[in-house]
């Protein structure tokens, strides 16, 4: 672990609880969802001026709660990287927004809503960002159907061809 990161991590742990882990020099801290805004405020105050990644992982069906939302902060001045992880349950998943702290979180949170269906409360403009506006479902969830069309082989080519939607005009 970077020497400069230790006091910041210790302070965050004391204030917000949570468990820290390190993998190949990357430090991540698991924080309960209720404290994430305060934690982000504190992280920003410590000099992490950049939210370099805001993404999520779906651990369904192995883990419960199934989602982990991952906030990755970078401090350009101190050359440090810090990751916060927030477990979010699968039923009505929601988190408070941090788009008032880091402005780029606006689009990132829209992407998370689009792809995982995690609602960010207090977000100014929570619409789909990647998929068409009338899309149903959230494609990066593990229980979302993977394929869209059955592959055609020689033995079932005709059968599948019959029910393919071809454009007439």
């Amino acid at each position: 672990m970077e020497k400069n990161l230790q006091p910041i991590l210790g302070m965050l742990k004391k204030e917000f609880g949570g468990t820290a882990s390190e993998y190949r020099g990357d430090v991540s801290l698991v924080i309960p969802s209720g404290k994430i805004v305060a934690a982000c405020q504190q992280v920003q105050a410590q000099g992490f001026e950049l939210l370099s990644a805001l993404t999520a992982v779906d651990y369904w069906p192995e883990e419960s709660p199934r989602f982990h939302v991952i906030y990755q902060f970078t401090s350009v001045a101190m050359n440090l990287v810090l990751t916060l992880r927030v477990p979010v349950p699968g039923i009505n998943p929601s988190l408070p927004t941090i788009s008032h702290l880091y402005r780029n979180a606006n689009w990132r949170e829209r992407e998370l809503w689009d792809m995982f269906g995690i609602i960010f409360k207090g977000h100014p403009d929570l619409r789909r960002i990647l998929m068409p506006a009338d899309w149903e479902g959230h494609p990066l969830r593990k229980d979302y159907p993977l394929g869209y069309e059955e592959p055609q082989f020689t033995f079932n080519f005709e059968e599948i061809n019959l029910r393919k939607p071809y454009a007439k005009e």
Binding site: M131, P139, Y144, P145, L146, G147, Y148, E149, P151, Q152, K164, P165, Y166, A167, K168, E169
Partner: peptide, 20 residues
């Protein structure tokens, strides 16, 4: 023509679904 290797939700499986 047929979606190629992208057999998933995001790609149209053959443009003949949209135009002749």
């Amino acid at each position: 023509s047929c979606g190629g290797v992208f057999n998933n939700y995001a790609i149209v499986q053959g443009v003949d679904e949209v135009v002749p």
